[in-house]
Amino acid sequence: MTTPALLVVMKITIGLLMVAFVLVLIRLAKGPHLYDRVVAFDLITSLVAGIALVYGMLNDVPFFMDVAVIIFLISFLGTVAISKYLSKNEPHE
């Protein structure tokens, strides 16, 4: 079922995701505030989940979908934890 054209498309997809990764790394390096870096890191974890998914498709290993699930779970927990930690000095909460 898997044709060589499909494998080439998967490699192109991984390449596009790598380009997006580099662009987000630029924002992570020069973000003016801490919040820009938090948002950039959130986007980086989503990109890593996508790269893991397409890599699993490329090597025909369905296990990598579990990897994407776990990465996304930890990303959500980390983002919410960081934002709650940064807003802990608020008097209303």
């Binding site: 499909l6 990764f21 662009l23």
Partner: peptide
Amino acid sequence: MSNFIITLFLLIGAFFMVVAAIGMVR
């Protein structure tokens, strides 16, 4: 037929990821 759909979805997904990254920079 399913190969065509997989190709289309992969390219659409990668396109929107790149759009998100360009938006982060720009």
